[in-house]
């Protein structure tokens, strides 16, 4: 098990390096001249040249890349061209806000999705099953930005249950409950399509598992139906379900991009959105890098979780050591 994790970690290193190469090169060719943005519209060519010199922008590309990478490793993401202050100063707070929404959305999606999936599988081909699967089919292909607007229309404009935008109330806000109140609509919007996909996966995996021989054996043993569903079937259907949950969490990290824009949630997606519009390259680089990093880390975590869930991987190494 330890070796397995070590192997996966090692394999992630070239991927991470590749990610930084891709981020750097993609954005190096982005439109907009950093120097002219920094210097302002009225600046002379000489001033721009001086800025390029000071930022190292006129040196060969590989040199620039290594310098950029070295700075990254020291926690220096460069200076935002819009806010005129180090990206590192504000990007992590944005990242936290995004993670707050992505994780609560993913948790919500997992809970709802798995519950519906198991229930539908245990009543496969019943009316409940058919109706929920039709609904999840539709919800699963609903654009997040549209879903967000519909939720705003229903619960913020029509019934005024939850606030439509922001993370805290402008007056007297900022407490835990206030944040939760603001979190509800965007988290639900983000969670719904994922919940739909998770429930369909959970249902399919549960149905497949319920058809296995060991389930028939468990029934022949006289175990209660509920116990068979919860213990024998679910535990075996779990690895693919966990994989999909991980994929959904990873997807939500970018999916919240749209949700954040719709709900004006002060997260990474929103920051990225405005940085793109303003050609604020260092901020775009930092945001994209953080999202890609989380994506790699989540995939890694799912791999490790799956290995741990499979006794053939978890126990075989332990036994080799033990006997």
């Amino acid at each position: 098990m330890g070796w397995f994790i070590a192997g996966r970690l090692l394999a992630a290193i070239p991927v991470l390096f590749g990610v930084s190469v891709v981020v750097f090169t993609l954005l190096h060719f982005a439109p907009g001249d950093v120097a002219s943005v920094l210097a302002g519209p009225m600046a002379s060519e000489a001033i721009k040249e001086a800025i390029r010199e000071s930022l190292g922008l006129n040196r060969p590309l590989p040199v620039q890349f290594l310098k950029w990478l070295g700075n990254l490793l020291h926690g220096d993401f460069g200076t935002s061209l819009v806010y005129k202050r180090p990206v590192a100063e504000f990007i992590f707070e944005k990242f936290f806000n995004t993670a707050l929404m992505a994780v609560s959305g993913a948790l919500l999606a997992c809970m709802i999705g798995i519950t519906i999936g198991i229930f539908a599988a245990s009543k496969a081909h019943s009316l409940f099953d058919r109706v929920t699967m039709a609904v999840t089919m539709v919800v699963g292909s609903t654009p997040l930005f549209w879903l967000g607007l519909i939720l705003v229309l229903l619960f913020a404009l029509t019934w005024r249950v939850f606030p439509a935008t922001g993370m805290t109330s402008p007056v007297g806000g900022g407490g835990f409950l206030d944040v939760v109140r603001h979190l509800v609509l965007p988290a639900v919007a983000a969670a719904m399509p994922s919940a739909a996909i998770i429930s369909r996966t959970a249902r399919a995996c549960m149905i497949e598992t319920l058809g296995q021989n060991y389930i028939r054996v468990a029934r022949a043993k006289g175990l209660r139906r509920n116990l068979i569903l919860r213990k024998h079937a679910f535990r075996n259907a779990l690895p693919p379900i966990a994989t999909v949950c991980g994929l959904e969490l990873a997807f939500l990290l970018t999916g919240v991009f749209f949700v954040e824009v719709v709900f004006a949630w002060p997260g990474l997606g929103n920051a990225l959105y405005y940085a793109i519009i303003a050609h604020d390259i260092p901020t775009v680089q930092a945001a994209v890098l953080l999202i890609a990093l989380s994506f790699v880390v989540i995939n890694l975590a799912v791999d490790v979780l799956n290995a741990w869930l499979d006794p053939r991987i978890r126990v075989s190494t332990a036994r080799q050591g033990g006997r």
Partner: peptide, 16 residues
């Protein structure tokens, strides 16, 4: 009434 089945390879739950 106890019962045993044909295929022992798939009749035990692999995760317990």
């Amino acid at each position: 009434i106890g019962m045993i089945f044909q295929d022992p390879m798939t009749s035990l739950n692999p995760v317990f």
